[in-house]
Amino acid sequence: MAVRQLSLWLQPEQAAAAELDAVIARLAAVHRTAVFPAHLTLLGVLEQEPDAAVSSLRQVAQLLDPLTARFDQTRCEPAWHRSLYLAAVADPTLRRAFEDAARMFGLRGKPAFDPHLSLQYSELPVADKLRLAASLSLELPMTVRFDRVSLWHTPGSDAGRWRQLADCPL
Rank of each mutant, 00 (worst) to 15 (best):
P78R: 10
A79V: 00
W80S: 02
W80N: 02
W80H: 13
H81A: 14
H81N: 14
R82G: 04
R82T: 14
S83H: 04
L84M: 13
L84T: 00
L84D: 00
Y85R: 00
Y85Q: 02
L86P: 02
A88Y: 01
A88T: 09
V89D: 13
A90I: 08
A90Y: 08
D91A: 13
P92W: 12
T93A: 15
L94E: 03
L94Y: 00
R96T: 14
R96N: 14
A97I: 01
A97P: 03
F98G: 01
E99I: 00
D100C: 10
R103W: 02
R103V: 00
F105C: 05
F105S: 00
L107W: 08
L107R: 10
L107V: 10
R108F: 03
G109P: 05
K110W: 13
K110D: 13
P111N: 09
A112N: 09
F113T: 04
F113K: 05
F113P: 03
P115Q: 03
H116A: 01
L117V: 06
L117R: 05
Y121D: 03
Y121M: 03
Y121G: 01
S122E: 13
E123G: 05
E123A: 15
L124Q: 09
V126K: 04
V126M: 05
A127C: 11
A127K: 11
A127H: 10
K129E: 04
L130F: 09
L130N: 02
L130Q: 15
R131P: 04
L132Q: 04
L132K: 06
A133M: 07
S137H: 12
L138Q: 08
L138E: 11
E139N: 07
L140S: 09
L140W: 13
M142Q: 15
T143G: 06
T143L: 14
T143W: 11
V144S: 13
D147C: 11
R148C: 11
V149Q: 00
V149Y: 04
V149S: 00
S150H: 07
S150T: 12
S150F: 06
S150D: 11
L151K: 10
W152C: 12
T154P: 06
P155F: 05
P155I: 08
G156F: 08
G156W: 03
S157L: 11
D158Q: 14
D158I: 10
A159F: 10
G160W: 07
R161T: 12
W162M: 02
W162N: 11
R163K: 14
Q164R: 11
Q164Y: 06
Q164C: 14
A166M: 07
